[in-house]
Simulated scan of single mutants.
Amino acid sequence: MPLHRRHMLAAPALLAPRAAQAQSAWPERTIRITIGFPAGSVTDSLMRNLLEPLSRELGQTVIIDNRPGGNGVVGTMAVKNAAPDGYNQAILSVTNGALNTYLVRNLPYDPIKDFAHTGFLAEAPYLLVVPANSPARSVAELIELAKQRPGELTFSHGNFSALIGSEMLCRMTGTRMLAVPSRGGPEALTEVLAGRIDSTLTDFAAGLAQVREGRVRALGVTSRTVFPLAPEIPPIAAAVPGYELIVWFGLAAPLGTPAPAVARFNEALGKVLAQPETREKLGRLGFAPRAMPPEQWRDFLQSQITSLTQLAREIGLEPS
């Protein structure tokens, strides 16, 4: 066999170890997690508590890039259009991962087809809160007030998931309240703190801190049963049977991200979410950590898009 032909046949064998080494070296630089919601939001709070352990597990720094706007569209699009190398990822939640597909006309991304799904993060309930001086001291009393003053009481919402939760409560109780949009969950809560809005569904950790300082009053939690972190707060379902709203969060990279990078990240994330100290820290903030392999996370997301779209239609929400 001519010498040059032997060299050509040997080349793939010589290159294979180098390719494997390059793949196993991921990550080699900083990983950016883009959040399509403001600093201080529930999504931001969750990810900030994962940065340090995830950085340790991956051996590279993981940072946050907040890009709020358009109910998460701005930040999500930034990642969709980023290089598919695993170094840019977005958090997909109930709002930008599911409800936007129905409620945003001409949505410029598809949460299933445009991303590689790198891992699930956690689930959490919302808190229903009212101003500290509100005459409503329970969910039943808030419902009665709304019935006495149809269309007069207000609720603020900083994202579509909070909107759908409040509209669902109105639908299930035969009441009408006026929806007031805010620029994120923190602002929606601030409006209630100031007494300008009658109620809001707020992020659990942020709301509970204000409740315990006496600045707002908690009427209920959106989980179906009592939430262990605040057993003194009844579930809304105790007054409105069948009511439940759980928000969830996962990560996704641009479509075309190499499978080894997805696998490496998912493995590291699973280890972090299984650590007792991580679970305890997130638990104190109202999060229930939950790891999933990429395929399961993608299937979960598809099922949520289907069920939440149906719910939005039933409630009467229209695309805008």
Rank of each mutant, 00 (worst) to 15 (best):
I236P: 05
P108W: 05
D110G: 07
I233K: 08
T61P: 05
D198S: 09
V262E: 02
V74P: 01
L219M: 08
P319I: 13
P293Y: 00
Q302K: 14
T118F: 00
G195R: 07
S45P: 03
A253P: 04
R56P: 02
I91E: 12
G250M: 04
T222D: 06
T175L: 03
Y243F: 15
A13P: 01
A188C: 06
P181C: 12
R298F: 02
D198R: 04
P53V: 13
I246V: 15
A78C: 08
P294M: 01
A237H: 06
V240W: 03
G270Q: 00
A22N: 11
P2E: 12
L273D: 06
L255A: 15
R149L: 08
G97I: 06
R212M: 12
P235W: 05
H7T: 11
I315Y: 05
S55Y: 09
V226Q: 07
P38Y: 04
N71F: 11
P254D: 03
A83K: 11
L9I: 13
A19M: 14
A209P: 00
G256Y: 05
L107F: 07
R290I: 00
P131D: 07
Q296A: 05
P276I: 11
E57H: 03
P12R: 08
G174I: 01
S156I: 02
R149N: 09
L311W: 01
E57W: 02
I164C: 09
A268E: 06
I197V: 13
L54R: 02
L127R: 12
R137A: 14
N100R: 05
M168E: 13
Q89M: 15
Q23Y: 13
M168D: 14
P234W: 04
Y102F: 14
E57N: 09
L128W: 03
R212E: 15
V129W: 00
Q304P: 03
N133W: 13
G40S: 12
P186V: 06
Q310T: 14
A90G: 01
I197L: 07
T101S: 15
A253E: 02
L301R: 04
M292P: 00
A132E: 08
P276L: 10
D44G: 05
G214E: 07
L308T: 01
G158M: 06
Q148K: 13
H4G: 04
E141M: 08
R217H: 05
A274Q: 12
N71S: 14
L103P: 12
T309E: 09
F155M: 12
I143W: 02
R183H: 13
F37K: 07
V262L: 00
N49P: 04
A179S: 12
T257K: 04
G286E: 11
K113R: 14
V104A: 09
G151K: 10
L219C: 04
T202D: 14
R6I: 13
A20N: 07
W26P: 02
A90V: 15
P131R: 04
S93E: 10
S134L: 06
G256V: 07
N49W: 13
G270L: 02
E187T: 03
T225R: 13
L219W: 01
L189I: 00
R264M: 01
D85L: 10
